[in-house]
Amino acid sequence: MKNTFLLAVDGSPGSSNAVEFATDRAKRGGARIVVAYVIEWSPYTFNTPEENAERHKRREEELERATSSIVKPVVAKLKDAGLDVDSEVRHGHTAQTLIELAKKHDVAQIFIGRRGASGLKDMLFGSVTANLVQTAPVPVTVVP
C-alpha cells in the first residue's frame, strides 16, 4: 500500500496550517512526505530575445529562492518531527504540475493549504486549490 503524501506549499499562512496538519497525519500513519513547490510558468508566453537569453540564469535564481526561503524550512521542520521527507521545486502550471508530481511519487493523497484569495482576483483567475480538487487523481485534503 502506497504511503506517501504530497504536501503543496507556497509560504502563505494557509500553507503553514497544511504543513501542521500533514505532519500530524503522517506521524500517525508513518507516511513519507514529498514537499512540493510550483513556480507558476508557461511554455507558451512571448518573450523578448533578451529575456530568452537570460532565462536560464533567472530559472536558477527562482529555483534557489524557492528552495531556500520556502521549501527548506518546511523540510527541516518535518525532519525535526522525525519524518521521511523528500522535496520538489518545479516550474509549470500549478495544479497540473502538482498532479504530475503526485503521479510521479505515487502518492496516496495531496495536502494543500487554502490560500483564501477572494474577490476579484479569484473570480478572474480561479484558484489553484479548486482546480486541483477537480482534476486530481487522488484525494485532496484542503486545509483552511
Binding site: W41, P43, T45, N47, R55, H56, H91, G92
Partner: peptide, 20 residues
C-alpha cells in the same frame, strides 16, 4: 512540447524561441 522533458520546465521552450 511533445519532447519537452518536465525536468527542464522553466527554461525557454521551443514555442517561445519560435515566437520570439
Amino acid at each position: 512540447g511533445d519532447y519537452a522533458n518536465p525536468n527542464d520546465a522553466g527554461e525557454v521552450s521551443h514555442f517561445q524561441a519560435l515566437a520570439t
